[in-house]
């Protein structure tokens, strides 16, 4: 009985640690699941996937908007920088980047980039390639790039699907044209 106090204190300390660990883990776990889904369970990093039109059957990401055509790219900077481009769209569009803790650390939209967006994404404090376009540092090695194109009906969704073919999400090195 005399030892009861130390067991109670142990339970309280473990409870506090578990509480904060749980709170910190929730966004990361949710993002890991999202990255896993977008990348086809890890098979397809650094490549855009044009999502099916949002319907009641859409279950990839919570609270999807049926008014947008989404393109998603699960990125992985382990092997170096990647280039991300977004082809312009007649109505609202934006390119946004999310770290693996769910932070939206970058966004650009058609007001700032009427002719489309082109960025080079690198790890924090990494040296960007000499010929890199606009350089953005990702706080984490992995994350998700997302393009939203306003497409509230089927016709505009189909048009967005065509436009999305021009988007690029790929390793910077693979896009370099070898010198001849």
């Amino acid at each position: 009985m005399k030892d009861a106090g130390k067991y109670v204190w142990t339970a309280i300390i473990v409870a506090l640690l578990a509480h904060f660990a749980f709170i910190h883990a929730v966004p990361r776990v949710m993002m890991w699941v999202a990255i896993d889904r977008v990348s086809g369970e890890g098979a397809r990093y650094n490549a855009w996937t044009f999502a099916d039109r949002v319907t009641p059957l859409s279950r990839t990401i919570v609270r999807p908007s049926p008014d947008f055509a989404y393109s998603a790219c699960a990125y992985d900077l382990s092997d170096g920088p990647i280039m991300i481009t977004a082809t312009p769209w007649d109505a609202y569009w934006s390119l946004s980047l999310y770290a693996d803790n769910s932070d939206n650390f970058f966004v650009v939209d058609d007001r700032e980039a009427r002719a489309g967006a082109e960025i080079t994404l690198i790890r924090r404090r990494a040296t960007p390639p000499d010929d890199a376009a606009r350089v953005i540092e990702s706080p984490t090695t992995r994350g998700i790039a997302l393009i939203r194109r306003l497409a509230p009906d089927l016709e505009s969704y189909n048009a967005a699907a065509e436009v999305a073919r021009g988007d690029v999400c790929a390793s910077f090195d693979t896009l370099r044209v070898p010198a001849t």
């Binding site: 966004p27 949710m30 999202a34 919570v62 769910s102 932070d103 939206n104």
Partner: peptide, 22 residues
């Protein structure tokens, strides 16, 4: 979506609105 969000806000958003814009 903010990088300045606290851990509780970030967790609530992740559950109910993952990939929200800032």
């Amino acid at each position: 979506g903010s990088t300045a969000a606290g851990p509780y806000t970030r967790a609530i958003i992740a559950r109910d609105g993952l990939l929200a814009l800032s």
